[in-house]
Amino acid sequence: MSKTRRTYLIAWIAILAVLLAGSILAPDGTGGESVQETMRDAVLHESNQINLLGLRAVNPGLVSGMVVTAFLLAVAAGIRIFVIPRFRYVPGRFQLILEQIVGLFDGMAQSNSPWRNSFLGAYIFAAGTYIFTGTLFELFGFQAVSTAGRSIALPAPLSDINAAIMLGVLSYLVILSGAIAGNGLRGVRSALTEISLLISMSFRLFGALLSGLLVTELVYYYITLSFVLPVIVAVLFTLLHALIQSYVLTMLTALFYGEMSEPKEPRLKPPAHGRGKLVHDPTT
């Protein structure tokens, strides 16, 4: 091992030791909050709320959602101004990634709903991007000050039940709109038979992301668990959730949208007397 490399290694170990000592010796910033209170607050957000521009106290998830939205819109604007005008027919790496992302959601919409998919593609693109980026946002641990004066890490937007309900309900409404556009009032009837989607989609999203949040909270609550383990936890509960939940919600929405918006054939019934041709049933 060369002398320079050895010096770097010793410096790195020293920095780690200082950080570890600092972490252990630094005063507890939670203000004596028990693990039960921390977990309960992660679910219900009863005490650790954030003041939204002096208007009212909101859950941290809403602030996270706004930050994610601002970030995504800034990135999109940058791409629109600086990258898209330089697109070429033979794409470079970044162009290829963008086309793959757009093509993924567009293809999903087209394959699941071949008859009506332009709006669906745009919706699942936005929803998928929001879920993915919002879930990854949790990894960065951006700090905010709660109304109680505590410093809290901003969670994933969809770990807030209000955000999960919003996205679940909105996805259901999108499906319902597809059903109406495809089949009129008959579509409404078929969409209402799938009303359980409202709850299943909302709470699936909420439960999945909340579980990640809770495990992370649990891990970070104890200082002894705060080394090495977060790497695995972050990968399992954040990166995988980001991918899986984006895929699940967008796939379910596209699937049900396609099923509901598919133009139904008029129901045929056999004639009342004897054998003969099938006739159109005017009541259907």
Partner: peptide, 28 residues
């Protein structure tokens, strides 16, 4: 579960802006 209609609408407002912006700036 501390479900708040106002916050749901705020989330919806936030997502509507995001969806519209992403559609105009990136998707289309």
């Amino acid at each position: 579960l501390n479900i708040d209609w106002q916050q749901i609408l705020l989330h919806l407002f936030n997502f509507a802006i995001l969806a519209g912006g992403l559609y105009l700036l990136l998707y289309r």
